[in-house]
Amino acid sequence: MSRSFLFLPGNNPGSLQNLDIFNADSIIIDLEDSVTFDTKDEARDLVYHFLSKFMFKTPSIYLRINDISTPFFNDDIDVLDSLEFKGYVLPKATKESVISLSKKTDKSIIALLETPMSLVKSEAIISLKQVDAVLLGAEDLTTAMKIESTVSRQEITYVRSKLALECAAHETLFIDTPYTDKDDLAQLKNDCLQAKILGANAKSIIHPNHVDVVNTVFSPTTHQIANAKRILKKAETHQKGAFNLDGKMIDKPIINRAKNLIAQAKKYQLL
């Protein structure tokens, strides 16, 4: 249950030791794209010693390791898996690479879908048991498709919808692609709203200054919270199941959704 997944570069001590101050629900410590080939070992050692020394209740910590085609994939897991963290973000995920990773760890897996083929076969990945979430990597995807990234993000409407639907079907979290313009917070908000409308549950972030906007958009609204409270209050007096509220039928799934929403609101200190 996270709204925001903030990427931080794994070889940067200044970022690591401040990872808990940015209000992100989850942190993804990156060993992949932000780390150059000749410093992969440095970053791995740094993250190892950092996580050996410091424990976090919040935020949840994920590691983006290197993909299975690289020699670093096994090293990353072998060195780091014994540490206390929530799970892995697996780049260029395929069904086969997720299965390979799941054989090496019991930790949860976020599949990073960023190639055209992975999006064609996304449901097979999402349906895997250890996959708790998928993350859409739109920059690599659009590059592979040789199409432009636009401000409106019209070009990824279909893949967002596709992943939202498949994730909903398999009760898996759908994390939207990051917004890349560091300074344009207004457009970031539009981008978040667009993703939320299409069914994203959370958003990945590549700059700490984006966290608040993302958290706000992906939090339950005050109206939703008030409504959920009313539903739960009325449910207490109607032990038998379905009842009527504002002319609408309220049954068990709706009551459960209200409970979840209140739990979320509590977690995010919105009550």
Binding site: E42, D45, L46, F50, K53
Partner: peptide
């Protein structure tokens, strides 16, 4: 650098 960083850099 904090201790963990110094240790990590030396290990590498």
């Amino acid at each position: 650098a904090l201790d963990y960083t110094i240790k990590a850099r030396l290990e590498t």
